[in-house]
């Protein structure tokens, strides 16, 4: 019965808007008539820590946590955070990752090395990797739109109607950001 459930893992670094993206996705799935459960961990998220959210939807969802290795998509706003959580999705699962590196404190202080070739590794492991270049985000005027852009990339791979997406993406942010968000989302969908 669980094969009807779609599980999306969203990861990034505190302040990147992972939780907002998860909430928009949850709302879209709810409007599409599905049962939805999402899980997020905050508390430390604003202090540059790793942030993880999970959204699961389908006819009936029990656990808000995804069993290891069964997620369908990983949406990562940072390369290291894509590597960290890749084990949560299934073989050949889809990874949408922003080509962006935010050095964690062990790296900035010189006690660890930021891994090279993260995307190649993900591809070698058989995941369906969609990489988003930072340039594509910068063109939108602010790197803060990265979360919405990547959500657009994800939306193109899900069966939720465009009108629903349009509504929930608009409703999720204050009016002055709505137009920019809509554009970011559409650019992501076109990708």
């Amino acid at each position: 019965m669980n094969d009807k459930i779609t599980s999306v893992i969203l990861s990034g670094v505190g302040g990147q808007g992972v939780l907002l993206a998860a909430r928009i996705l949850s709302e879209a799935a709810l409007r599409a008539g599905m049962d939805v459960k999402s899980s997020e961990v905050h508390g430390m998220s604003q202090r540059g820590g790793s942030v993880l959210a999970q959204v699961r939807f389908g006819p009936r969802v029990f656990s808000s946590l995804t069993p290891a290795g069964t997620g369908d998509f990983l949406v990562a706003l940072e390369e290291l955070e894509a590597l960290r959580y890749r084990g949560m999705i299934r073989n050949k699962g889809g990874i949408i990752v922003l080509r962006h590196r935010i050095f964690p404190s062990p790296v900035t202080s010189g006690n660890a090395v930021y891994p090279e070739g993260a995307l190649d590794l993900l591809r070698d492991e058989g995941y369906a990797v969609s990489a988003v270049e930072m340039d594509e985000i910068v063109k939108l005027g602010n790197i803060r739109f990265a979360n919405i852009f990547l959500l657009g990339v994800l939306a193109a791979r899900l069966e939720i109607k465009d009108e629903i997406w349009k509504d929930v993406v608009t409703a999720a942010v204050p009016e002055k950001f709505q137009e920019k968000n809509r554009i970011a989302f559409e650019k992501g969908m076109e990708k």
């Binding site: 202090r47 290291l80 960290r84 404190s105």
Partner: peptide
């Protein structure tokens, strides 16, 4: 143990 470098929370 994860081979991925930790990202602990830090003072801002």
């Amino acid at each position: 143990p994860s081979e991925i470098t930790m990202r602990p929370p830090v003072m801002c």
